[in-house]
Design a protein around this nucleic acid. Structure first.
Length: 453
DNA sequence: CCCGTCACGGTTGAC
DNA sequence: CTGTCAACCGTGACG
């Protein structure tokens, strides 16, 4: 399979190659509606139509002032008609769509980590993907994808969205090229390339192409008789990676411990009869076990408060290195692609705006910042729209201890990464009888529906 | 019925 | 500031 988003290596053009750009005809409706989308290879007769055309009003933030910024920044308002807003205030519109299962999603955006986590969690409990799909109301394709990725990388986090491939011609590289050139004016670009590799300045993944080197020689070196703009000023030139640093702040707005407790498993802890053999010991802070840990509300609040702070930096870095070490060119720091946290960041940022959870929780688990708020349906949370699944009867599958109901708050909280040191303490022993909803039952005084099914 | 796959329309963020 | 590009997203249908 492709999709090798390997932990360590961030191949920018990974295998997940798809013909994408090829025939994408922009314009049509949102994904949900793209009924007419033509499938190049196999035209489907009747693609489903507009069932989703209407979006649901999910609440959203009412929260009133919570959001730091008016969401203008969100997905461009008024893009496809399909998107819909869920808010009452114009500025706070958020967009969301409902899939066939009744779940809410934001086209183009990753599912909340809480959901992702839940998917993995349920899978480990032995629940079949199809059931997970129904329970969480996430398309099975998505469930499949997330589980596949998890199995492959050990991470439940989405990949890096947006951005550009890190530059390979870092100041350091330029400097070396210049040195080589100065040392041997007649040196060829390809020789420089070889030397960069030989000297360990670059590796095969980030060595500049010959043409790039030529360009550097022509544009930079050529005129650089003296200290280049780079080193003169900044010693360690900003590595491309830097931009990703901010990611490390990873507060997830919603606290509360999720059922994470339920599994409460460390990589090897009893509990999940994971059909997904994942007893991997995943050093990452994002390991499922860690993730399942819950941060305390206060902890989170604090984190949120200091949005700019480095509440989680240490950990994140740790994770970073684990997760994305591979990009040689970009040293450690960014080992972590912003990517992973990206989504959360957003939440984070907005959260910070909210100042305290209090603001966002009442109505929405997430600060209503643009799309994200979509996931925060009031009370019901992500699953809100639509009848409980299965519709009328109890969940057929859920093992006793694994009721899979998801609460909005829970979801939001699920992904909070707790500090390792607290992990154990915070975790509740999983109780066979249930997932300890109590932890979730109230948040900051707010009652959260114990269960929806 | 299940599930892996992939086109699609979408968002994001660096340049 | 805006546009472009290339990454990723989840959905939904195919097989």
């Amino acid at each position: 399979m492709k999709f090798t988003l390997g932990l360590g290596s961030r191949a920018w053009r990974v295998s997940w190659e798809r013909a994408t750009e090829a025939g994408a005809s922009p314009g049509a409706g949102s994904g949900a509606l793209r009924g007419g989308a033509l499938r190049v290879c196999s035209p489907r007769p009747g693609r489903r139509g507009s069932r989703l055309a209407h979006a649901l009003p999910l609440c959203l933030s009412g929260g009133g002032g919570a959001r730091a910024l008016p969401d203008c920044s969100g997905p461009s308002p008024r893009r496809s008609g399909a998107r819909q807003l869920v808010g009452s205030r114009t500025m706070e519109q958020t967009y969301g769509e409902v899939n066939q299962l009744g779940g809410v999603f934001v086209n183009g955006r990753p599912l909340p980590n809480a959901i992702r986590l839940r998917i993995v969690e349920l899978a480990q409990l032995g629940i079949r993907p199809c059931d997970i799909s129904r329970q969480l109301r996430v398309s099975h394709g998505c469930v499949s994808k997330i589980l596949a990725r998890y199995n492959e990388t050990g991470s439940i986090l989405p990949g890096a969205i947006g951005g550009s491939k890190p530059r390979v011609t870092t100041p350091n590289v330029v400097k070396h090229i210049r040195d080589y050139k100065q040392g041997d004016p007649g040196i060829f670009a390809w020789e420089i390339r070889d030397r960069l590799l030989a000297d360990g300045v670059c590796d095969k993944y980030n060595v500049p192409s010959v043409s790039s080197i030529s360009r550097i020689l022509r544009n930079k070196i050529g005129s650089l008789a003296q200290p280049g703009p780079y080193e003169a000023s900044k010693q360690p030139p900003p590595q491309p990676a830097l931009p990703y640093n901010h990611i490390y702040q990873y507060p997830y707005p919603s606290p509360v411990s999720p059922t994470g407790a339920k599994m409460g498993s460390h990589p090897g802890v009893p509990g999940s009869a994971g059909h997904v053999s994942i007893p991997r010991s995943w050093p990452s802070a994002h390991s499922v076990s860690n993730i399942l840990g819950i941060r305390t509300f206060m902890e989170q609040t604090g984190a949120l408060a200091g949005s700019e702070g480095s509440a989680y930096s240490p950990k994140m870095e740790e994770w970073a290195s684990v997760n994305r070490t591979a990009f040689p060119a970009t040293p450690a720091v960014n080992g972590l692609e912003k990517p992973a946290l990206e989504a959360d960041i957003k939440y984070t940022q907005s959260a910070s705006g909210i100042s305290a959870v209090s603001g966002f929780l009442p109505a929405c688990a997430y600060p209503a910042s643009n799309q994200h708020s979509v996931y925060s349906a009031p009370g019901g949370g992500y699953l809100a729209p639509g009848p409980p699944w299965p519709p009328a009867q109890g969940p057929p599958l859920a093992p006793p201890g694994a009721s899979v109901t998801v609460h909005g708050g829970e979801l939001a909280a699920a992904m909070t990464f707790k500090h390792p040191s607290r992990e154990v303490a915070d975790r509740k022993p999983s109780s066979p009888g249930g997932k300890a909803p109590d932890a979730l039952s109230s948040l900051h005084g707010l009652p959260i529906p114990a269960s929806t099914s």
